[in-house]
Design a binder for these strands. Structure first.
Lengths: 235, 235
DNA sequence: ATTGAGCGTATTGTTAACGATCTTGTCAAG
DNA sequence: CTTGACAAGATCGTTAACAATACGCTCAAT
């Protein structure tokens, strides 16, 4: 059984299908659901304790964000982004996130900056204590947090989708054991918040995303039998 | 019965639910489905000639893009964006589309530029001959076409969503009878393609979006009994 | 030993019927 | 004349059973 149910099955609480979607998003971000993992309906029904309809709706929503792939009569699988899709994800992030950083600096109040600083500390702690899953999750949540500070629901949604897909891309093409974000970059971005330098924040974000991308292209050369899978694995 | 089925019901062809979603997107863009319109399941089943399940899946996908609102036990309605949501849509468009224009100029080949020019002529023709629905649809498709030239599936999807929601916003807050895009702005953007001036294209797009926004804020003062609907209509 | 065909099983996709909730129209009371 | 309650009708949400497809195993033939 897939270990999606983080924490304990809460009592007869209301489980919205957006909860299910968020939980699967998080599991993918933390790389506990590697690309290609089969998401069987019955297994998910047991894991979340809901009926099949909820699960199917959730899988459809996840597929509409390109986080899972639906194959007719074969079921749902965690997406395996192609190199072309990986390019598109980073292109979109480079188009969006610098502007989000700019907006966030302009809108941030003291509370927001404190939250960012605290988040940075949590990232540092998780990294220092080798809590890999936490480190990866916090790394991604940093970008979502920026969108929240920017105060735009559309941007939050889009960044969540892009960050999740980035986790899949790193899992596929990244060198093993490499964390996706270097904390230094995040610290530099938060630094721009303290000086209220929106342009610097945007530029730091651009550099940060380029770092991730370069790191990927460096590790993309190594390929064993995986090549066959990447070429012919999915339709 | 809502007149969604543009053209004739084709024979027993395969009707993917993405077709249904696209058709409803287009109908919303052309403002043939005003905000608040009820989308009854049975009516849609008849209109598209498919089972209830397909319709419900399509409505869920549309709701995930904030184009329809789902009210429990009450059904699906075309979304009525709040002023706050309108602000978010334009903020997202201003963050995205100038960069899309930049990318499109960098990637455009002769065929792409020819297509853009031809599209401009179609817009002009539709506007001249007072084909209001065509004019509005082409106006929106121009922005989608730019994303297609940029060659990024994520950007295409996002722009489609934002353009559709913009049509709803214009229907709610715009002065009546006003087309959403002035052709002059589009012409200026295409002009930047001929001179291969990516920066100019980006800046023209920024100005274009600001024009639309200003046009809206000008018409947002007039409000009759619609105010009550906008304030209390939806949960 | 490897490859191909054939069959049983398991999972998915669809349809239909049921139950719950909301809307609407009517009627009576103030 | 207005307002409140009540009941009939309709629509939505859920569950369960059925049908269709793909997978994995066995077995035989080259």
């Amino acid at each position: 059984m897939v270990d999606i149910s983080r924490g304990n099955l809460i009592e007869a609480e209301e489980i919205d299908e957006s909860d299910i979607v968020d939980r699967i998003f998080e599991a993918v971000i933390e790389q506990r659901l590697p690309p290609g993992t089969k998401l069987s309906e019955s297994a998910l029904c047991d894991a979340f304790g809901v009926g099949r309809m909820r699960i199917r709706r959730s899988l459809l929503l996840l597929a509409s964000r390109d986080v899972v792939e639906l194959h007719a009569n074969r079921g749902a699988f965690v997406a395996s982004p192609t190199p072309e899709q990986a390019r598109e994800v980073f292109e979109a992030r480079l188009a969006l996130e610098p502007n989000i950083a700019r907006l966030a600096v302009q809108r941030a109040n003291e509370t927001d900056i404190a939250a960012l600083t605290r988040h940075l500390e949590m990232e540092y702690m998780a990294h220092k204590e080798r809590h890999r899953h936490d480190a990866i999750r916090l790394s991604g949540q940093f970008h979502t947090l920026l969108a929240q500070v920017a105060g735009n629901a559309i941007l939050i949604r889009t960044v969540k989708e892009l960050v999740t897909r980035t986790s899949l891309i790193i899992g596929l093409f990244g060198a093993p054991g490499v964390s996706n974000c270097r904390d230094d970059d995040h610290a530099a971005i938060v630094g721009a918040f303290h000086t209220r330098d929106a342009e610097k924040a945007a530029w730091m974000m651009t550099l940060h995303l380029r770092h991730i991308q370069e790191h990927l292209e460096a590790g993309a050369k190594t390929s064993d039998s995986v090549d066959l899978m990447a070429l012919f694995g999915k339709a």
